[in-house]
Structures are given as C-alpha cells and as structure tokens.
C-alpha cells in the first residue's frame, strides 16, 4: 500500500511516501524562527506550512515517480501540536483524500514517534519508549503496535526545554542540547550537585523546572568570572542531572514491568551523553538515527499504513486536537 504521510504539528513541514514499511521518498523542511521577522510565531509557522506543504508534496511525488492517483491513503498528524499548524496539514490532507476518493487516517504525533523506530530497526513489541524533545517527555509502554499505555510525563518542563533554557542563560545558541554537550565534554559531571527531580516518587513522571532553577541560581551565585572558569564542569553536571533522571525512570519501569527492550527517541535522543549512559545499561537498546528522532512524515505514513492494513480509517469530519493524549480518542467530545 502506498501511503502519503503529512506532518505539520510544529516547526517542521514534512511529507513522505512509504510502501510496505519502506520509504519511497521523503522531505523535511525545518522552519527557522530566527529568520522570520515581526508577527507571531504560531501564526508564522502556519503561514510557512501553507507555503511549503504543496511544494514538498510535489517534490516527494516527483522523486518517487508516482502520480497522486497512485496513492492508496493519506496519513496526517492531527495532534498534539500547535493548533494553527495542525489545521494546515489536516486541511491539505483532507483535500487530497477528497479529490482522489482515498481513505484518510488521523495519526497521533507521539504514536508516529513510536512507529518511527521502525525506520531504523526491525523491532517487535513489547517495549518501553522514552520520547524526549523540546516539547515532549513521555514514557510509554508499547504493548503492541497501536496498543499503548502512557506511564509518565513531565510535570512542568520538557527535558529538551530544560537544556534549551539553560543554554540561553549562559548565552549559547538554540537548540541548547548540542551546545551544552560540546562544552560539557571537557567537564567533570560530579563537580556540581544538581537535584535529580522526582527521585523519590514511585511514579514514572519527570520534573525539570526545579533543576532549571537550581542552574540559574548556581550561575547567579558564582558570578560571571567563576561561571566562565567552571563552565564545562557546571554544564557536565547539569547535563548529567537531566540524563540521569531520564534513565532512572526508564530503569524503574524496565524492572517493574520486566521489559528489557528500550527505545529512546525524540530530539534529545541525539544527545551523545544520553547515548553513552544508556548504552552501558543492561538493555536491548534502540535509539533511532538522529533524522528519525526528530519530526518527520515517514513515521506518520508508517503508522498510517499499519492502520490501513488493519482496515481502519478516520471519518472525514475528524477534528484536530492540540493536546491529544496518546491512547485516548482524537475527539474530545
């Protein structure tokens, strides 16, 4: 089955065509907030999507040598994400589906990331998936494809957000993760003590707001000169506090459910330190290649093909849901 996937939930405009779990062609366009001037970002994101989506769709069809009439179904992200951005993708997808009288399947963005691991590995559930990015920190029990339980999520900031914001405080550029990593490599992660949040709670939730505050206070207390001299040590310690709290909860979940097969994905999964520390655990570990850790449409198309083969499609009047929780119905009412 040839499935056209569309993803516009945040700042990436992405289109892909897959067939039998294989990518025929794909495109991702990353919007850069910095380059745009004036106005409001969410609205600009939507404006950018509407310009790019058609162009990318044409390119993807061209490269695959297919015509739109060859496509068997459309898969599109319907949430969670920025409402304006989601609406662009969903409207575009509905138009194509309507025009070609083909099925449409609404996909949860997080479920897309779960399927995304198949782009890099052959893997069979059950497994635990940790999705960590600038906008997400979710720990998911994948019983089977299409069958999930959300074990835990962040109570405040996402893990990537904690990295981005700390980077900002000391004048590093966005995204903060790779910048912090570079400097932290020369530091000693045991030199500063940062709190590991939710260490003593027996659930699988995360919290990074307190850690971020501790970071800001440390910098403030040290002053500019001492901060400069100790920067590698501070960042190495801070980075480890985030990585450790992620791995701690994964470890607990792994033991509690007796599941050793672990997937870590999302933008923060590109973190070298997270990879290092996860690798030494006694896990059967899967961390997708970086381009499939971040937002893409192939993962959406893959999820779409799965549902299509199960004979499922979404009625044409489906809404978007900007805070669609994994494992719950798309429509809130």
């Amino acid at each position: 089955m040839k499935v056209l996937g569309i993803e516009t939930s945040c700042d990436e405009t992405a289109v892909s065509i897959i067939e039998n779990n294989t990518i025929l062609s794909e495109q991702v366009y990353s919007q850069t907030v910095h380059e745009s001037l004036g106005g409001v970002v969410p609205e600009l994101a939507s404006r950018d999507h509407i310009k790019k989506l058609y162009v990318l769709a044409c390119e993807v069809l061209d490269k695959s040598g297919l015509a739109i009439s060859d496509i068997d179904a459309i898969a599109v992200t319907a949430g969670p994400g920025l409402p304006g951005s989601l609406i662009i993708g969903v409207s575009f997808a509905k138009a194509i589906a309507l025009m070609n009288k083909i099925p449409i399947i609404a996909i949860n963005h997080l479920e897309g990331h779960v399927f995304g691991v198949k782009l890099s590995y052959e893997i069979t559930p059950p497994f635990l998936a940790l999705l960590v990015s600038g906008g997400h920190t979710e720990l998911i029990y994948v019983h089977n494809w299409g069958d999930y339980k959300l074990l835990g999520t962040t109570r405040d900031d996402a893990a990537g957000e904690a990295l981005d914001k700390a980077a900002k405080v000391i004048g590093l550029s966005y995204p903060g993760g790779p910048e912090i990593q570079k400097i932290a490599e020369k530091g000693d992660p045991r030199s500063f003590r940062f709190p590991i949040a939710m260490l003593h709670s027996d659930d699988f939730d995360f919290s990074f707001s307190g850690l971020k505050t501790a970071f800001a206070l440390t910098i403030r207390k040290l002053g500019i000169e001492k901060t400069k001299r100790n920067l590698a040590n501070i960042l190495a310690s801070y980075q480890d506090a985030i990585v450790d709290s992620l791995l701690l909860k994964l470890d607990r979940a792994s033991k509690k459910f007796g599941i050793n097969r672990i997937v870590i994905s999302g933008g923060v999964a590109a973190s070298k330190r997270l990879r290092e520390k996860a690798t030494v655990k006694n896990w059967e570990l899967y961390m997708p290649e970086t381009k499939y850790c971040t937002d893409n449409a192939s993962m959406i198309a893959l999820a779409g093909e799965f549902y299509l083969l199960k004979g499922q499609q979404t009625p044409m009047n489906f809404p978007i849901n900007s805070s669609w929780m994994l494992g719950t119905p798309l429509s809130m009412k």
Binding site: P80, G81, L82, T154, R155, A158, K165, S209
Partner: peptide
C-alpha cells in the same frame, strides 16, 4: 492540577 510549561506550544488551555 496539571500545569506544564507551554514554552514549546506557546499556549495551553
């Protein structure tokens, strides 16, 4: 009770 940072999505309702 569930108040999370909307930095990424800008708005939560």
């Amino acid at each position: 009770e569930m108040v999370k940072s909307p930095s990424y999505v800008i708005l939560k309702i």
